[in-house]
Amino acid sequence: MIETIASADLAVNEKLCIQKRRIQNGNSTRRLSFVTGTHGDELEGQYLAYMLGKYIDDNIDMLDGIVDIYPALNPMGIDSITRGIPMFDLDMNRIFPGTRHGTMMEVICSSIVDDLSGSDVCIDVHSSNIFLKELPQIRMSVPTSEILLPYAEHLNVDFIWVHESATVLESTLAHTLNTRGTKTLVVEMGVGMRITREYCEQLFDGLVNLMVYMGIWKGEAPQVRKPVTSVNREVGFVNSGAAGIFVPSANFGDEVKKGDYIGDVLDPLTSAVVERVEAVCDGMIFTLREYPVVYGGSLIARILEPVKEGKAE
């Protein structure tokens, strides 16, 4: 069943509609919500939404519960290759929970939150932006980690990043829903404006595994990997120190030592290497720059350090 959960008339002969598809079978009312498309340049979740819906359709008898799929929270952004909401300054993922008395998108956000609230688990899939490529990972704040980690471990991601809370993140969809008691996990994977089939297939197995764990899928659980977590580890940030073109020499998932060569920042005008980029710590590269043009400060890589001595993962 396809349902419009929020709508507003646009200025000229068009309506903005936020849609979801509900797939329901069996007696259970346990509900998994799959939500994506908050940022219009993040497309990995589009393919995943298709895969999930098709698989359940083809095996509907295995479902004992509800799966709600929200493929596009920001349909105008996806349609216009715009990360944010066209003609609106604020990032959509910074205005939750929204309000019924605010601007159009705040009203829409309020309806989205109302509709998602009460799900047993919600998976909020993001890609990276166009600048960075990310290994499939789940991000959560320290205060939510006790509740969310058991679910995250079923999702077949490579990495779970448990980070400190930040006030500005209190206006995200995930924070809003977690505050209201709806367990919400944020997935980051791949790169903006592209679909990485391998990563979508990896997370798809994780979603099926999660449905088995939740008791809403009667089929066999797929084999999934055990993710590394950032608990008792540090994350090292490699930022460009110069402006130019970044050409990588390292790959995703590479294990590096502090000082190892990661790539060069080049000046095409003078043919000079303006910066030799090196690892800032030992560990695994889980973020790598995809878009070559860099300024001073542009993020080039993130490295997950090994577990500190004497600490357990």
Binding site: A8, D9, L10, A11, V12, L16, G102, T103, M104, V107
Partner: peptide, 8 residues
Amino acid sequence: PLINEKTV
């Protein structure tokens, strides 16, 4: 000049 519904 153009306005959407529910705009302040």
